[in-house]
Computed example of a mutant assay.
Amino acid sequence: MNKTQAEAITQAILEPDVRAQEDIQRRRAAEALSVARRRQVALLMLIGCAIGGVTAHFLGVRFTLGIIWGGIAGSAFGWFVVWLRSRPRAT
């Protein structure tokens, strides 16, 4: 067996492992991106809750309603920001 045949056999044996590792790496990267996006939304939702609570206090509305509606608005804004950042850029 010459060197090229040995390399071809080695490549045939190792190739499925390389593909599987690349697939696992792609899945982990996609999952990490998803977690990062959800954390951004959660942060903006918490900020919205705080703003809604303060606004409700000064307007004389129930505090809990202010927190809920502020959180909903913050969440919607957060998903909008995530959507804007994930759009493909026009060149």
Rank of each mutant, 00 (worst) to 15 (best):
E7A: 05
V35Q: 13
G52W: 00
L59E: 06
A73Y: 08
F58V: 10
R62L: 07
Q25Y: 13
A73N: 06
L84D: 09
T55R: 05
R87C: 08
A36I: 08
P16K: 03
G78A: 03
D23L: 06
R87Y: 05
Q21A: 13
P88N: 09
G74F: 00
A50F: 04
P88M: 11
R85G: 07
R26K: 13
V61R: 13
A30H: 08
L44M: 14
G48P: 01
A50T: 04
G70I: 00
I47E: 01
L46E: 01
A30S: 09
V82S: 06
F80Q: 14
I72Y: 08
A6Q: 11
G60L: 13
R26P: 02
V54K: 12
L46F: 05
F63T: 05
G71P: 02
A30M: 11
F77M: 06
Q5N: 11
A56H: 07
A73S: 12
R85N: 10
R85L: 15
W83N: 15
G52M: 00
A8D: 04
R19D: 07
T91R: 00
E7H: 05
I72T: 09
G53S: 13
V82W: 02
I72R: 06
R37F: 12
R38V: 11
H57E: 09
R85M: 14
I9L: 14
G60I: 14
A12Q: 03
R62H: 07
T4N: 10
S34Q: 07
A56G: 05
L84R: 14
Q25N: 09
R89K: 15
I13S: 03
A30C: 05
R38C: 05
T10G: 04
G48F: 00
A29D: 13
T64Y: 00
F80L: 15
A30P: 03
Q40H: 14
G48D: 01
V81E: 06
A30D: 14
T10A: 12
I51D: 01
V54I: 15
G74Y: 01
C49M: 15
L46T: 01
A73W: 04
A73L: 14
G53C: 07
I9V: 11
R39W: 10
C49K: 00
G53E: 02
H57F: 13
H57G: 04
S75Y: 15
R26F: 08
V41K: 01
E22R: 11
E7V: 09
A42N: 07
E22V: 06
A50Y: 02
Q25I: 06
I51W: 02
L59P: 02
F77W: 08
W69T: 09
S34C: 05
L43R: 10
A73Q: 05
I68C: 08
P88Y: 05
V18C: 03
V81I: 15
R37M: 12
T91S: 00
Q40S: 13
A42T: 12
A8E: 11
W79C: 03
D17Y: 13
T91E: 00
N2R: 06
L84G: 06
S34N: 08
V35C: 09
S86E: 15
A32W: 12
C49A: 14
F58C: 03
A56F: 09
E22A: 07
